Simulated scan of single mutants.
Amino acid sequence: MIKNYLKITFRSLWKSKVFVLINIIGMGLAIGCSIVAYLNFDFNANFDKNQIGMDNIYRINAYRTFREKEQAYGMSPLPLAEAVRENVGDVDDVMRYMPSGGNFKLEDELFNENFTFVDTNFFNFFTFNITTGDASALKDKASILISQRIVEKYFPEGDPMGKTLTHFTDKGPRDYKVAGIFEEQPLNSSFGGVRIITNIENFFDLNASEEDGRYEDNWENWVTTFVRVDNKDRIAAIEERLDANYLEIQNEARIDFKLNNYFLEPFEGMAYRAADDITYGHWLRSSMPPPAVTVPIIMAVLILLIACFNFTNTSMAIASKRLKEIGL
C-alpha cells in the first residue's frame, strides 16, 4: 500500500517537475538564510557569556574632545592603576592588560603570535579554563601560559610543559618556559585571540629607557585598566576622585591628548557598546555592529515570505490543471 502511495506521489510530482523544483529551491534557500541569520544572531547575543561573575568588573575609560566631538577611549594612563591600588580604598582590586605580538622561536621553527601582558591577578578577574598548570605561573616573569591552539599548532606530538620559547625583541632574545595551558577563548569573547600570556613586568623591562626612567611611571604611556568594585554605590565617588587627583597630571604629561574626565564602564555589555558607540583604543574584541545582526534577519524574513508566496502561486497553477476534477 505504502509503495503504491509513493509511486503515485512521485508521478504527480514528476508531472509538475518545473513547479516542484522552483518550490524546493525557493524554500530551501529561504530556510537556509533563516538558519544563517539565527546563528549570526545567536553568536552575537552570547558574546562574553563564557565570562562568569562580571557584575563588579569595570574598565577605567576616559572622554576626550577631538574636533569638537567628545569621544570615549577604553584606555588609561599606565601609572593610574598603581595610584588607584594605593590611594582609592573603594576599589577592591586593580588589573592591567596590554596586548602585543612578537616573533618566537621553538627549536628551529620561527613563528609570529599574539603576546599578552597582564598583572598576576588576571585570572581572578576573567574566566579562563586552565587545563594544565595553574594561575600562579604568572608570578614568575620567566614563565608563560599558552592556549590549546598553540599546543596543537606547535606541539602536535609532545607535552609543551617545561619547554622553552624564545621571544625575539629589540633588546635581544628572551627565553620563556611554558608553565601552563588554557583553553582557547571562543570567537565571541572580548579576549578572543589571546594565545600567549605572561607577567606585565616583562613588558616594562622590554620598554625600559634610561632617558625616560621607569616605563610604568610615565603618564605618557597607556594601558587597559580593569578594577573590581563590589559596592556599586561607590562608583560615582571613585570617578570623582579619579578626576580630582589624576586628571591634571595626565593632561600636563600629554598636552596633545588632554582628557575631559574618567569614568568606569561595566564589563557586562562592554563589547556591544564598543561596536555601537565606537570606543577607541580599548584593545579588546568588539561584538558585531547592530546592522550586521539586524540586516540578515530582515533579509531572511523577506526571502522566506517570497518563498511562501511563490509556493502559493505555483500550487494554484498546479491546481488549475485539475479544474474539471475540482468542479466535480
Rank of each mutant, 00 (worst) to 15 (best):
I278W: 05
R285E: 14
N221Q: 11
K321D: 12
N207Q: 10
E86H: 06
E70G: 09
G101D: 10
W14N: 13
K324N: 11
Y176C: 13
K49W: 13
N218W: 07
I150D: 00
M27T: 14
A208T: 03
S12N: 15
P290Y: 04
R285Q: 11
E109H: 07
E157G: 14
V223P: 02
A274S: 06
D90E: 14
N207I: 13
G74H: 01
V194R: 00
E210D: 15
A244C: 05
V229Q: 00
D134E: 12
F10V: 15
E70W: 05
G32F: 10
R64P: 04
N124P: 03
E239R: 00
V301R: 03
I196T: 10
Y97M: 11
Y73H: 09
K7L: 14
N23Y: 08
F10D: 04
L165M: 10
K258E: 11
I130T: 12
N124I: 09
S190R: 00
D108W: 02
S189Y: 05
T131K: 05
R195P: 02
L259N: 00
E183M: 14
V84N: 01
S315H: 03
N50Y: 04
I57V: 15
N87M: 03
A253F: 01
N245S: 06
D276T: 12
L80S: 05
A300L: 08
Q51P: 04
P296R: 08
G102Y: 11
E211D: 14
R241W: 06
L259P: 00
I57L: 08
A319F: 04
G89I: 11
L206D: 12
L242A: 01
L304R: 00
R234L: 14
I150L: 07
A137G: 06
I200D: 03
W283F: 13
S189F: 08
S286A: 08
F123P: 00
I298D: 02
K141H: 13
D276G: 08
L323T: 10
V223G: 02
Y246R: 01
I57D: 01
V91A: 05
D92A: 13
K49N: 14
D175M: 09
E109I: 07
T164W: 02
M95D: 04
K7I: 15
T116R: 02
M316L: 14
D48T: 11
L165K: 03
I150H: 03
D212C: 09
A253T: 06
I146F: 05
I318R: 00
L13F: 12
E240M: 13
F309Q: 06
Y58H: 05
I144L: 08
N87L: 03
T198V: 12
F203K: 06
T312A: 13
L80Q: 00
F155Y: 13
D276I: 05
D243A: 08
I298Q: 11
V118K: 01
A83Y: 02
F168H: 11
S315V: 12
G53V: 14
T120K: 09
A275P: 01
F128G: 02
L80T: 05
P160E: 10
R228I: 15
L6F: 15
V84P: 00
S315N: 11
G89H: 01
T131C: 08
E82M: 07
L242N: 02
S189P: 06
A271I: 03
V18N: 11
H282A: 10
N40G: 09
P173D: 10
P99M: 12
V295F: 12
L21D: 11
